[in-house]
Every structure is written in structure tokens, then in C-alpha cells.
Amino acid sequence: MSSENSTLPDAGAAGAAAAEGVSRPVLRRLLRDRRFLAGAAVVIFIVLGSALGPLFRDAMTTPDTDTLMSGPSAAHPFGTDELGRDILARVVGGSVVILQVAAVAVGISLVAGTALGLLAGYRGGWVDAVLMRVVDGLMAFPLLVLALTIVAALGPGLRNALIAIAVVLTPRFARVVRAEVLSLRSREWVSAARIVGVPSRAVMLRHLLPHLSGTLLVFAALQLSTAAMAEASLSFLGLGIQPPDSSWGAMVASGVTRLETNWAMAVFPGLALLLTIAAFNLLADALRDALDAHGPEEV
């Protein structure tokens, strides 16, 4: 048995070698893709804004009664809100929330959904039936409705909003991974691994998971925009991040009632959210085409 194991091709190693072999062509395609460059530029600005956020903490949270509802000016390029707080500083502060959504909510849903999809797709039988019925039950609800229900049960706040977003995105990852595993588990190298007695966990992690990396990368990039929009919607309704911290959704909610007196309160955070969602979608589209072996070499 040990000799057979030693001669069995390691699909995980093969997948890693293949990934290393195509990484340079993929990178060249991305660097020639204007969508990737535009999306990456916006994401870099978000990261920089998040890093500079603490420097703007006082301007974000400290009211100034002398500059209530002022329009854009040299002192306040985006104007001030109803409490005299600098809108530019609050927009910069909102970038921290977007990064938390991207790193925490999407990260948790990626890990949990991948684990569920791998287990359901590889095991099959009653395990697949039970897990997928749970997934179907969660996906039967509209995303925002389910997120609102979870936050309403847990209470408002950024942490609970992140939990809600992670819960509603997990079934999406599970469905995608399960579909991929169902198509891979009948391959010869998976059957060979089973025959020689490779443990199921090793088959899933070393043989199947490396072949899912491209699909998961593109799908995760797509879900970044969904997560950002969900967080903004929850904050717009007052169930996300709470004052005095800033969120683009909450800023838009505060500004839409004051459009006639100070349009900047809603327009600038709305533009920031729009550009961020567009950037995530551009990155996902560019990654999909770059990872597609039959995709165009140039855009």
C-alpha cells in the first residue's frame, strides 16, 4: 500500500505546480487589463484611507457649531454635516468599514462555505442532502431580508452586521464549491486516491481544494460588492455601524433628508460607495478573464 501511495500522482501538488506555471501569464493579462488597473487603483485608495483613518478621528466625531451644514470649501473640500463634522474625514473613515466587511464577512463566508461545499459534494448521500437543504432554506430568503432578520435578532452594530453578512453569503459559496466538487470527484485521480486509501480529508484538502482556487478567487471578488452593498443598506436603515463612527450608508441616510440644503452630505458618500462597488466588480471581471485559459490575451 505504501508503494502505491508513493506512485500516486498528488493532484494537489499538480494543481499547485499548474498554478505556479500560469501565475505569470495571468499577472501579465491583469496588468494589461484596464479594468483591473482601474479597480486596483480604487482599492488602493480605500486601503490608504483606512490607514489614514485614525488621523481624521477628531474631525469625524467632533461637532463644530460654527460650520453647520456648510458646502464644499477650501477648509472642508466636501463640506460639513448637520453637526459641523467634516464630510471628507467621515468618508475616509467609512473606508475602514468597507475593509472590515471585505476581510471579515467575506473571509468568514469563504471559509465556511468552502468547507460545507467540499463536505457535501465529496460525501454525497444524506450528508449532501441535509447540508444542501439547509443551504436552500437560507437562500430562499432575499439576501437583505435575511440580513435584516439576523441583525434585528442580534441587535444593531458593526459586529452583528458582519455576522449577518457572513451568514447570508455562506450558502452562495457552498453552492458554488459543491457544484465544482461534484464535477471533480469522478475524475480518475480522485478515484485513484480513494482506491489506495488516502483519507477523505486529504482528498478534499490536497486533491480537490487546489483545483477550486481560481473559481473561489473570482467568486469572492464578486461577493465583495454584494457585502459592501449589504453593509451600506443595513447602516442606511440604522442597523449597521452606530454613531459617532462613520459609514457611507448611514451618511447617505442622513443626507437624503437634507438634499435641498446641503447636497454634499449624500452625494459624496454615495459616490464613494458607487466607486467601490464598481471597483470590486471590475476586479472580479478582470480576474475571471485572466484565469480563463481560453480568454483573450488582451483587453
Rank of each mutant, 00 (worst) to 15 (best):
L8D: 05
D10N: 15
A11K: 07
A13R: 14
A13E: 12
A13S: 08
G15M: 09
A19R: 12
A19G: 04
E20L: 13
G21A: 15
V22W: 05
V22R: 15
V22L: 11
R24G: 02
L27Y: 08
L27T: 09
L27W: 13
R28M: 04
R29W: 02
L30A: 08
R32H: 12
R32C: 01
D33L: 03
R35S: 12
F36Y: 11
G39S: 10
G39N: 05
A40G: 02
A41W: 02
A41K: 06
A41H: 06
V43T: 03
V43I: 15
V43A: 15
F45A: 14
F45K: 02
F45V: 11
I46F: 07
L48T: 02
S50E: 13
G53V: 01
G53Y: 06
P54C: 06
L55P: 00
F56Q: 06
R57K: 07
R57H: 07
M60T: 06
M60P: 00
T61M: 14
D64E: 12
D66C: 00
T67E: 09
M69T: 01
M69C: 01
G71A: 08
G71I: 08
H76L: 07
P77D: 14
F78T: 01
F78D: 11
F78K: 12
G79N: 06
T80M: 10
T80E: 09
D81M: 11
E82F: 03
G84K: 13
R85A: 06
L88Q: 02
L88E: 03
A89E: 04
A89S: 14
G93F: 02
G93C: 05
V96Q: 14
I98D: 02
I98P: 00
L99F: 03
L99R: 05
L99A: 08
V101Q: 04
V101W: 04
A103T: 13
A103Y: 04
A103S: 11
V104S: 10
A105Y: 04
V106R: 09
V106F: 02
V106M: 10
G107A: 08
G107E: 03
G107C: 09
S109Q: 08
L110P: 00
L110M: 15
V111N: 12
A112V: 14
A112Y: 00
T114L: 12
A115N: 03
A115K: 05
L116F: 08
L116I: 14
L116E: 07
G117A: 06
L118M: 13
L118C: 06
L119R: 02
A120M: 04
G121D: 10
Y122Q: 08
Y122K: 05
Y122A: 03
R123L: 12
